Computed example of a mutant assay.
Amino acid sequence: MDPLILFVHGANHDGWCWTPVLERLDRLGVAGRAVDLPLTSFEDDTAAVREAVREAARSRPVVLVAHSYGGLPVTAGGQEADRLVFVAARMPLAGESPAARTPRWGHPEFRAAWHTDDDGAVILRPQAREVLYSHSPPNVAELAAQRWRPMRSRVPEAPITDPAWTSLPCTYVVCTKDRTVRVDAQRECAAHATESVEIDCDHSPFFSAPGRLTAILADQAMRAARADRA
C-alpha cells in the first residue's frame, strides 16, 4: 500500500491547520490524515497518537509528522511509524525532562501571549496571532485564531522513555523566522535528527510555506514507499 502521512498539530490547535498541506498532497496523489489531539492531558494526547499510528500501520507505511508541542506525544507514542518529521517541534532526548527544557525552548514573545484560566486551561491571547503567524496570509491567520482551543495538557516533568525518534529515520524542519520557538533550540534538536532542513518561514509553515513543506513531506512518503518495497 502507498504510505500515509499522519499529521499531529501543536498546542491550542486542531487538525484543520494542516489543510493547505493536505490539499497539496491530494494533487500529488499522496494520502494524508490529521489527528485531533484531545488536549486534556499529555497522557491522553500520547494515547491518541499511539492509536492513530497503530491503526494506520496495519495496512501501510506511516510517515508521522509533528508540529511544536505535538513533538512530545509523537516522541512518546510514535514507535510504530516508519518515519518521523518534526516541524519546529519538541524532540526531547532520552533522560531529559521536557519541562526543565521549557525556559530554553519558548520565545519570550510567545510566553507573553497566553495565560492560564481559572480552571487550569491555557488560553491564547489575541497577540498570539502575530507571533504564531507573522508571515502567514492574514485571512488564514484570522480564521486559525478563531479556531484556537483551550489546552489542559502540560509538558511532562518526567523524561520520555524510549523516544520514538531514536529508533526511526527522523527529519527535523527548522523554521528560521519563528517567533514562538527559539530558532537555536530548534537547531539543537535538528543536530540529533537523521537529517534536517531549514525553511525561511514563521512558526506555522502549513500556512506560510505550504508548498515547500509539502515537497519535503512528499519526499518522505516516497522514501517510506521505497523502504517498504525493499
Rank of each mutant, 00 (worst) to 15 (best):
D2W: 05
H9D: 00
N12R: 02
H13D: 11
D14Q: 04
W16G: 12
T19L: 13
P20A: 13
E23N: 13
L25E: 03
R27V: 10
V30E: 08
A34L: 04
A34E: 01
V35E: 03
P38K: 00
D44Y: 04
D45C: 06
D45S: 05
T46D: 04
T46A: 08
A47F: 03
R50H: 12
A52Y: 11
R54S: 14
E55S: 13
E55L: 13
E55G: 05
A56G: 04
A57R: 15
P61N: 06
V63S: 07
L64W: 05
V65H: 01
A66E: 08
Y69A: 01
L72V: 06
V74I: 06
T75H: 05
T75R: 06
A76D: 01
A81M: 03
R83D: 09
L84N: 00
V85I: 05
M91H: 10
L93T: 08
S97G: 01
S97K: 00
R104L: 14
E109P: 02
W114Y: 14
D119L: 02
P126H: 01
E130G: 09
E130T: 11
V131T: 02
Y133W: 13
S134C: 14
P138E: 14
N139K: 13
R149H: 00
R154V: 02
V155E: 00
E157N: 09
A158T: 13
A158E: 15
I160L: 14
A164K: 08
L168N: 04
P169E: 13
T171N: 09
T171K: 15
T171P: 09
D178T: 12
T180I: 02
V181P: 04
R182F: 08
D184H: 11
E195H: 08
S196C: 14
S196M: 13
S196H: 15
D202N: 04
P205G: 11
F206N: 05
F206Q: 08
P210Q: 02
T214D: 08
A215H: 12
L217F: 03
D219M: 09
A221R: 11
R229W: 10
R229D: 14
A230G: 15
